[in-house]
């Protein structure tokens, strides 16, 4: 609580300034300058290998950057941040993985309860009440005692979203949350994401679900070869993409 200086209401939630990242000699992110405003839903799309996942993973520093800066809620993410401060910051950034990454040795309920107890020092009762509320919210109040191995992919991803929400993050990041799911389970996860967006959650979503982008996103970022080529409203982006690469990408999607 003490460290999260509540930034001014107008300030962006996430700011990328001149971000550069390389894997060895291979550039992964080039000159990224962008902002996610408070309450905004940004969908990041682009061909595979364009740097979308790398970009979203730099926000909570699962990936390091070589130059530039990233601010989350007014706080510098990279640079000198270490140890406990970094952990504290990460706990305020909800992150949902493509492969769910639930803890398989814990029940759905314990997956959601673990971090509030161990990191925030919440009491078991309080953590349990929060976890029950969140699991109910993602439609899994009848699965609280199930282990991840007993849940479908869509159910696991919904538990993962509840787990991230339990830390009460001011923003949620989604790294291809539906890409590992069977088609019939995509809808249930997107529904949860839609409801989060409708409640004003700040969201940054890497996804290939263009229907979701069209309906829910405030802005779409199109990435290719490590750069953000376009940042536009979904309406502009889908109707009138500026770059040749974006046009081809959209044409390929329609096939």
């Amino acid at each position: 609580m003490t460290q999260s200086q509540p930034a001014q209401a107008g300030a962006p939630m996430i700011t990328f300034s001149n971000v550069q990242k390389r894997y060895g000699a291979v550039p992964a992110l080039i000159d990224i300058n962008a902002e996610v405003a408070r309450g905004e839903v940004v969908v990041v799309c682009g061909p595979s290998g364009s740097g979308k996942s790398t970009l979203i993973r730099t926000v909570n520093r699962l990936e390091e950057i070589q130059a530039g800066s990233i601010q989350f809620d007014g706080q510098e993410v990279h640079g000198s941040l270490r140890g406990k401060q970094l952990n504290r910051l990460r706990s305020r950034i909800g992150f949902v993985f493509q492969s769910f990454n639930l803890f398989p040795h814990l029940s759905a309920l314990d997956n959601v309860m673990l971090s509030p107890i161990k990191i925030n020092g919440a009491s078991r009762e309080a953590a349990r009440a929060t976890a029950m509320r969140l699991l109910d919210r993602v439609g899994l109040s009848n699965k609280i005692q199930s282990f991840p191995a007993q849940l479908s992919g869509g159910q696991q991803q919904r538990v993962a979203i509840a787990r991230a929400l339990a830390m009460e993050p001011p923003a949620m990041l989604f790294d291809e949350p539906t890409s590992a799911l069977d088609p019939e389970m995509v809808g249930e996860v997107l529904a949860v994401m839609r409801s989060l967006a409708s409640e004003g959650m700040t969201m940054m979503c890497v996804t290939h679900e263009m229907g979701f982008a069209r309906d829910v996103a405030d802005r779409v970022w199109f990435m290719d070869a490590g750069r953000i080529l376009e940042a536009a409203t979904p309406d502009e982006f889908f109707r009138n993409p500026q770059h040749e690469r974006a046009k081809r990408f959209l044409a390929d999607l329609r096939h």
Partner: peptide
């Protein structure tokens, strides 16, 4: 890698991630 990344993303430090996850 996924388990450690999930732990880190939730804000667990190295010791906490090892011990509980």
């Amino acid at each position: 890698r996924g388990q450690m990344e999930a732990a880190k993303a939730l804000g667990h430090g190295g010791a906490s991630a090892m011990l509980y996850i």
